[in-house]
Each structure stands twice: as structure tokens, then as C-alpha cells.
Design a protein around this nucleic acid. Structure first.
Lengths: 200, 200
DNA sequence: ACCTGAACACCGTTCAAGT
DNA sequence: ACCTGAACACCGTTCAAGT
């Protein structure tokens, strides 16, 4: 019954069934202990969740730039951050829940800033560029729904588009928006436009 | 004790204190009725939240394009959507909670698609463009934290940057990222780059 | 130092019983 | 048709009491 064992078990529960699935009573049952025993080791449920997030953040693999040209390296970092966000939804779900998105996104942000600096950008212009890339990643995260799954009844954007009959909307556009899309393509497209426009 | 009165009261509670603050028992107290009476009119708490969202979506002001050139009109729609997202955080909070972000973003999406069509784009190219703009808006929403407020202890990205001493990061960039920024500037910057790159 | 048990103040929801 | 009350199965948390 160390804090370590409690945090580990809590983490497993959160990762397998979501944040809401972690109750102190279920956790206690899993640990074979009275619910109130947990409070002696870790504080409240909230503090426990913070401890779980801390551990997850520590284990997050560092982002490694790849490529030779500045543009390639910046793009590789952007892609690496995005992949990591996609592959570790629980971390960002939890960070969001606890209001600690800054902590979760910061390590990648620093690596990105390094490559942007190396590309020769500086000051406000560089900051806008870094933030714009983070916006794209955040948009991907939000609209891909990586951290909140749709319930059975909910309609997708594609389904909604199939029901549209608007003469002002290009039919081919309507058709394209009616098809599911890997967000990857859109992300590549937008990032590419941004990179070209800034780094030439 | 009509469904209308229940939904209205529930909506007031959600808007003033957040989704979590809506409990069937508190709502019943507010209505001066037994908690169980609510279940006869609206179904469960979840169904009630859906009804609240439906009403909010109905009342959302339609997005109106402005400007004469195609680029201006597209930009105005993007800005209008973003402003609406910022000014109606509860709607998007609730939509996210219920897995209905598609319903919330769709009306603006259609207007955007119209203007992009009018600008002469078509098919997959137009779809990528529309989705990229929505990515930017989503990123703004997520990183601006418009729908999840930071608790007292949490650090901001700016605070984290002030603690960085990395020779590979341009000092002026570090300084810029250490200052709070209206996300407006970044959004304008990224949107402008994207528009220029696509519409010329 | 560490754990238990009882207790408090909450939840959502069902369902028989009332009018 | 509409509402109440009792009841069930949950919560997080505190705190005195035990070892």
C-alpha cells in the first residue's frame, strides 16, 4: 500500500475506462483495502489524478526532430507532436480535465521553438508561427475527437453533409465533405501551406 | 411544470455554474418539486442535457458573411465562427460533453462552404481548405481554454516559458512566448497565411 | 504509522402509491 | 395525467477508534 501502488492502479483504471470510471471506492476494492485508507497516502481524488498525470507526463517520449533542411525539421516536429497527441489520448484528456494542458504541451513546444529558431525566425514572428502550428495540432485533437468519443445516437459531420441540398455549395465540395477523412491529410495540407508561406 | 420550464431552469443552471453543477435534486429544489417528478416530463439527466443543447443551438445567431471580395468574405465567416465559439462557451462545452460537436459546428460550416464555393474552389481542394479553417478555429477553442478554466495552482504556458534557459531557442522568441497573447493575433496570422496561400 | 468503520452529505434512478 | 415518498445503489470525504 505505497502511494506508488495506488497511483499505478488508479492510472490503469483511468487508462482502461476513462477518468469518470475512477472512484475511490472502486479503487479501494481493487487494492483490497477500505476506501478511507487511500486518503492517508494520497490526498483527495483530485490530487490522485494530478499524481497520475505527473507520472504519465514523465513517461512521455521526448520529441525528436528529423530531416536536414529547416523546413523538414520543423515539419517533423509538428508531425511528431501530433502523433503523440493521437497516441496518448488519456494524457491530454486528463490534462484538460485538470486544467493542465500547458504542462502536457510544453515539452513539444520547446522542441518546436528550437527548430523554428534554427530556421532563422525570431521574436514575435517566430512566436506567431509556433502558436499557429500548435493551433493546428489542437484543432486536430478537438475535431478528431481523440479525447471524447461519440455516443451511439450522435451524428457525424459527414452524415450531416449528406443531408444538405444547397445550390450555393459546390456539389463536389459537398461530396468531399460527406466522406470520412483521415485528419492526417488536412493536417499535412494546412501545415504545408503554413510552412511554405513562412519559410519559403 | 412543463418540459419547457424544466429545460429553461436547467439551462440557467448550466450556463451560470457549469454542466457538473446540474443535479436533478438541485434542479427539483429550484422548481419546488420532488426530484422524481422531473423524470416524468424529461427522461434522464442526459436527455435533459440534450434538450438544453437543442434549445441553445436553435437560438444561435446565423453566421453572416461580410465583404465584397471572395477572400474577405471567407475571412469574415471564419472570424464570425470563431467569435461565436468564444462568446458561447457553454454551447460548445455541452456539445463536447454530449459528443455532439458536429451539431454545434455544422451551421457555420455550411456558410463557410458556400463562400469557399463562391471563391471558385471545388471538390477535395475546397474540402481541405474548409477543414483547415475549422482546425484553426478548433485549435483556438482548445488552447484558449474557452471551455475549461484553469484551477488556481496550474501554470500557464507563459509561466513555463519564463523558466526556460535553452541556448537553442532564440531569446526574442522565448520572450515573446513568455508574454500572454490574445489568441486573436495568432488566429489572424494563421488564417491570413492560409487564405493568401490558397486564394492568392 | 497505518488502517477500519461509522457517519455525513451528496448523487441518479425506479417504482409503487397516491390524487 | 401528474406528483410524492421510500428505496436502491452509488458517490467523496472526515474522523474517531483501533493496532
Amino acid at each position: 500500500m505505497s502511494p506508488d501502488r495506488i497511483v499505478d492502479t488508479a492510472r490503469r483504471m483511468v487508462e482502461s475506462a476513462g477518468i469518470e470510471a475512477l472512484s475511490m471506492r472502486k479503487l479501494a476494492a481493487e487494492l483490497g483495502v477500505a476506501p478511507t485508507a487511500i486518503y492517508w497516502h494520497v490526498g483527495s481524488r483530485e490530487e490522485l489524478l494530478h499524481a497520475v498525470l505527473d507520472r504519465m507526463l514523465q513517461e512521455l517520449a521526448p520529441i525528436e526532430p528529423a530531416g536536414t533542411t529547416s523546413a523538414d525539421r520543423v515539419a517533423s516536429v509538428a508531425h511528431a507532436i501530433r502523433s503523440q497527441v493521437r497516441d496518448t489520448p488519456t494524457v491530454h484528456q486528463l490534462a484538460m480535465h485538470l486544467g493542465r494542458t500547458a504542462d502536457a504541451s510544453f515539452p513539444g513546444q520547446v522542441v518546436l521553438a528550437r527548430e523554428v529558431s534554427h530556421a532563422g525566425l525570431s521574436g514575435d514572428e517566430a512566436a506567431d508561427f509556433v502558436r499557429a502550428i500548435l493551433f493546428l495540432i489542437g484543432g486536430f485533437q478537438l475535431l478528431e475527437g481523440t479525447f471524447r468519443q461519440r455516443p451511439e445516437g450522435a451524428r457525424t459531420t459527414q452524415e450531416l453533409w449528406r443531408g444538405v441540398d444547397d445550390p450555393a455549395v459546390d456539389p463536389a465540395l459537398r461530396a468531399a465533405l460527406s466522406e470520412a477523412t483521415g485528419a492526417d491529410g488536412v493536417f499535412d495540407y494546412a501545415l504545408d501551406r503554413l510552412l511554405r508561406s513562412v519559410l519559403g
